[in-house]
Amino acid sequence: MPDAERNNLVQIHMTILEPHERADNLPPSTAGTPYECWIKGFLIDKAANLGETVTIKTWIGREFSGALYKVNPIYDHNFGTPQKELLPIGDEARHQLEQR
């Protein structure tokens, strides 16, 4: 089975500028890195595997080609873990108000 089939929501990767093509005056930590981009859209190719060059159509109908990076990409940012430094703040403030 291929990793992705036509009309699957996928994410592609493109290198826009190689390190030597980048703007002048970049800080050293940035200057040595390529300028890269990821875009999501619906696969136009019949089938493809990760890493292969594919064409997608974005939500607004524009087409792009790039390396297939992810299929049905997840949004995995989250609420984080409870922070012990934050947990007591509410009760401390409430207590201070009651002391007035």
Partner: peptide, 13 residues
């Protein structure tokens, strides 16, 4: 909201 989003790496480019 249906936008085409370009997720780019750091840089003034």
């Amino acid at each position: 909201y249906g936008a085409e989003v370009w997720q780019l790496t750091v840089g003034p480019e």
